[in-house]
Simulated assay, not measured.
Amino acid sequence: MTETLELDPREDAEGEALLQRSWQLTRTLARELSPRDLRTGRWFTQLLSTYLRHYDAHRLHEAAAAKGTGARTTEALIRRACEAAFLTGAGSGSMTTGLTVASADAGPAGLMVAVPASAVIISSEMLVRALIHLRLACDLASAFHVRFDPEDPADFSRLYAILRGGEEQDTDEDPLGLGRVKHLAEAKATGVGEDVGAKLLGDSVSRNLVPFLNVATSSLTNWRRTRRLGDSMLRYVRLRRALEDADAALRRVAPRTESLLLESAWFIFVSDGRLRSEESAVLTHELARLPRPQRRETLEHFVEDTAAWLQRLRSAPAESREVLQGALNALAAADLAVTGPERALLQKAAHALHTSLDNGHLDKLVRRYRKEGVAHPHPVPASEPRARQAARREGPAPIH
């Protein structure tokens, strides 16, 4: 008896849609990018803008959001991107090695063909790797209902900062990293993008200089950097979701406490050392939403001494205190571990807010963040109207 293989029409439709999207993106990139863009580093700005519009136009965020924020889901996204980047690096290394060997046998004529061909391969690998990274970043953000706006240059610069995470070095003049926050708030997206693009191109060329060895260096480096990007992006969207949820909760009970929330986030972030790049990006994103005078005033409160901040917490509206304490707990737990200095700071904040710190609840928050990516909603003050409480039980508002 002969068995027949039945094909699922939905799989055929999905495959056809994928091919069509890929072809549209390829045509758009071919139209938008030029060899001069590769030389100047502008290619990355163009690529980012084009891809974010492509991601929005095809509503690719819906599939990622439907899968949720669970640890298994986000880990699968990161691992799949790592595997794709690994294969991309191995393929480019193998092809450039093959060209080198062939050109050595063919003499000068072979070199004349091999050099430009290798340049095309290296550039193509760099572009594909960047697209893999951008898809990973967008999918992780979409899972947490966070969106990067292709029309907002500030969003670009924050994404660049995450992609470059770990490159900033401590300085005596800026021990906490406030300079990075100010830089992200003021830097032009095109300038930062050209800098990133130039560095990525130089990195791609350097990894393909040694034949045979480049197969290993390209593939392993691609895996390692994709892994680092995924972990950094996951921390960013987790913190941004926690901070925006806290901001939404505060606006319902005390609309004029946004600056105090950002100041509180600053002290949580720096309590155990210098700001991480993703923490800088989160703060900058929230600062950008404030009017300029309020933004400047808030930045002036980003200092090392906590005395003035604790005094402002004591003066916070009574209806906002439980929400502020919940926000501080969530921001500390969202890093998947609450350090000793963070617990000490949370204890001081609880005293100033006339609330209490429940270490058991804090540990539960950490475990939930580890497993589910998000934590419990912020507590509702007893004085809040029942209608508002019912509205909040329906779930947090979408984050844009």
Rank of each mutant, 00 (worst) to 15 (best):
E384V: 15
R31V: 13
W223H: 00
F86P: 02
E83Q: 10
L239W: 03
V282W: 00
Q24F: 10
T217D: 04
I121N: 05
D272S: 14
W43G: 02
G98Q: 02
E322S: 11
L134T: 01
A248N: 10
L176Q: 13
V366T: 10
R27A: 15
D245L: 10
F269V: 05
L136M: 08
A352H: 07
L345P: 05
Q169W: 06
L260C: 02
A106N: 05
R225T: 13
H351T: 13
H285R: 15
L220A: 06
T226A: 03
E168F: 09
L87C: 05
A344D: 15
A242Q: 07
P108C: 08
G360H: 11
A141E: 04
A185Q: 11
Q325D: 13
E83C: 01
E11W: 12
Q46L: 14
P396W: 07
E151C: 06
H400D: 15
V323F: 03
D195G: 08
D358R: 04
Q311E: 12
T298N: 07
S218R: 08
A154E: 14
L38V: 03
T40E: 09
A71W: 12
S123D: 05
A332W: 06
R386I: 13
R207W: 06
G340P: 03
A65L: 12
L25K: 01
G89M: 05
M1Q: 14
A344S: 15
H61Y: 14
T2L: 15
F44R: 01
M112P: 00
R274G: 04
A102Q: 09
R321H: 08
T97K: 08
T97Y: 09
R21H: 09
Q325T: 13
L131H: 02
R368E: 13
R276S: 07
L201T: 03
L60P: 00
P291M: 03
Q389N: 04
L111Y: 11
L159K: 00
N222F: 01
R79Y: 12
A248D: 12
L220Q: 06
D12C: 05
R207C: 03
L176I: 01
T355Y: 08
K199A: 13
A161V: 06
W309D: 00
E3N: 12
S22C: 04
E258Y: 05
S124A: 10
V282P: 01
H378A: 12
D231Y: 11
W266C: 02
L140C: 05
V181N: 01
H361L: 14
A349G: 15
A352P: 00
A90G: 09
L261F: 03
L357W: 08
R386N: 11
A254Q: 04
T171G: 09
A84F: 06
P396K: 08
R135C: 01
F148S: 00
A64D: 04
H133K: 03
A249K: 00
A248P: 02
G373A: 06
A137Y: 02
N359S: 11
T226R: 02
H351K: 13
A387H: 10
D12I: 15
E278N: 07
R368T: 12
T45V: 13
